[in-house]
């Protein structure tokens, strides 16, 4: 019995164990000229910063996957919103707060569109978001005439409000603001998933949609709301991304949806719905980010990096799969 419990515990904690293992290995192999380039505070903060965009998107994706759906449009929404908020600030002279609100609104609108197609037209999430992925990308390129909109900060025409630059700053020159935003959002959504009615209903719908409906849960409304949340989280990531690269680019964010799904899957979220946690997603995102960082530090060819990441996903999901005897 005891060994069974230990086994269960190990299974539960294996993504944490994997994270620690990667951390240890990274700490050992990244010593150059007697200096540990991985364990360097600034480098670790870089990992956090790099993780935050994917992490924020993955928060939304986790909820969508728990519902048993998928949202393929988030990457394109990143492209659209980063373009949109840059255009609104630079071309239309919008201030910081209005630009942020407008960005969130664009995200919400896309989520609403996805949600309505899925709940009211009864289409599959995969197809709907595949379509809206193209719609968002097309709209972004149309808006910006296909080119990036550079962000130069200052007051006056053609300049972005200086407050926006905060999104790419570091507190005390060390802790990146995006990482703080990511961690705060993660905590909020962790609370939502574990301690609120809404969270409980998400798990219920993903576990058995029909039974949830019979238990009086308004399945359609919750799905709609979740798709809106997911796209809004993608918008947050989009603004951070625009600030990080100092421009709004219509071609940015491609493939982000799959990175987010990967983080969720590594963190133990089931694509079949009903199972998954925010903390798992955090671990998943950290594993991906750390791996990128280490491979980068070791100067591994970027194409090889991609392959390593691919295999890692397979291994992680294989280890998590509930296997029957």
């Amino acid at each position: 019995m005891k060994t069974d419990q230990t086994k269960v515990l190990i299974k539960k904690m294996q993504s944490v164990i994997a994270l620690i293992l990667i951390f240890i290995v990274a700490s050992v192999i990244c010593v150059q000229d007697g200096k540990n380039v991985f364990l360097d505070a600034r480098n670790l903060m870089n990992v956090l910063r790099a993780v935050s965009e994917n992490g924020i998107i993955a928060i939304g994706m986790t909820m969508i996957l728990i519902l048993g759906d998928i949202d393929l449009s988030v990457g394109s929404v990143v492209g659209l919103v980063s373009t949109g908020c840059a255009a609104l600030m630079v071309w239309n002279g919008l201030g910081f707060i209005p630009a942020v609100l407008a960005s969130l609104l664009i995200g919400a609108a896309f989520g609403f569109f996805n949600g309505i197609c899925i709940t009211k037209l009864k289409l599959q999430a995969f197809i709907v978001t595949l379509a809206s992925m193209n719609i968002a990308r097309g709209l972004a390129r149309f808006w910006a005439n296909g080119v990036g909109i550079p962000l130069t900060y200052g007051k006056g025409e053609g300049l972005a409000p200086p407050q926006f630059e905060v999104l790419q700053m570091r507190i005390n020159g060390l802790i990146p603001v995006p990482a703080i935003i990511f961690l705060i959002l993660l905590l909020i959504f962790h609370f939502i998933m574990t301690r609120t009615r809404f969270g409980r209903q998400l798990y219920a719908i993903g576990g058995n949609r029909q039974a949830s409906y019979l238990a009086g849960i308004n399945v359609d409304r919750i799905k709609l709301f979740t798709f809106m949340l997911c796209s809004m989280l993608a918008s947050v990531a989009a603004m951070i991304h625009a600030a990080q690269i100092s421009q709004g680019g219509p071609n940015e964010g491609s493939g982000y949806e799959l990175n987010a799904v990967a983080a969720c899957a590594i963190g133990g979220t089931s694509l079949a719905g009903g199972k998954g946690t925010m903390l798992g997603t955090l671990i998943g995102a950290l594993i991906l980010g750390m791996l990128d960082n280490v491979l980068g530090l070791k100067g591994v060819n970027s194409n090889l990096q991609l392959m390593v990441k691919g295999f890692l996903i397979i291994i992680a999901v294989f280890m998590q799969a509930e296997r029957k005897e």
Binding site: Y203, A204, G207, N208, Q210, A211, S212, L214, G274, K275
Partner: peptide, 9 residues
């Protein structure tokens, strides 16, 4: 099982 319960919960 199909309508009454959410088996994985």
């Amino acid at each position: 099982k199909g309508l009454g319960l959410i088996l994985g919960m």
